[in-house]
């Protein structure tokens, strides 16, 4: 039976009736067309589906849409403003920290959360913060350089 949920996605109130077995990733991608959040392993290993839920980065593939009821979700689409890209996105572009780009949305969300908490992280802290985001192109060094430069 569908359940009615109300949540805030990128500062926008969203109301929808969803099946209980719909994951937050699928809800964002297929119901709200926010396809920036990627589906990778779908088992919480790769971090491609990282979103920020109530201020904490999580694997949205392991969260049910109904669990996000009443909560605040930030996705990659919510970072850029009318003034331009978010500084983390700018840094990724500047440093070429993108190869195939599939891990980038998750990586950027994890990096944004780290920089919100700790504006000047050292390399160890950066590596620890993005440990849950896998880059199969193995372009980690440029990603770390980009985050350091923000």
């Amino acid at each position: 039976m569908k359940k009615l949920i109300k949540l805030t996605v990128n500062d926008r109130e969203v109301e929808a009736a969803v099946e209980p077995n719909l994951t937050l990733t699928d809800f964002l991608r297929y119901e709200l067309n926010l396809t920036g959040t990627k589906k990778g392993c779908e088992t919480g290993d790769c971090g491609a589906c990282t979103v920020i839920l109530d201020g904490i980065p999580v694997n949205s593939c392991l969260v049910l849409a109904v669990q996000a009821n009443g909560r605040k979700v930030e996705t990659i689409e919510g970072l850029a403003t009318e003034e331009g890209l978010h500084p983390v996105q700018d840094a990724f572009v500047e440093h070429g920290a993108i190869q195939c780009g599939f891990c980038s949305p998750g990586m950027i969300m994890s990096a944004k959360h780290l920089l919100d908490k700790n504006p000047k992280p050292d390399e160890g802290e950066i590596r620890a913060a993005i440990a849950g985001n896998l880059c199969r192109c193995t372009g980690y060094q440029k990603i770390i350089d980009a985050i350091k430069s923000v």
Partner: peptide
């Protein structure tokens, strides 16, 4: 335990 994202949940 796991990755930071897993530890958060």
């Amino acid at each position: 335990l796991g990755s930071p994202l897993v530890r958060n949940r």
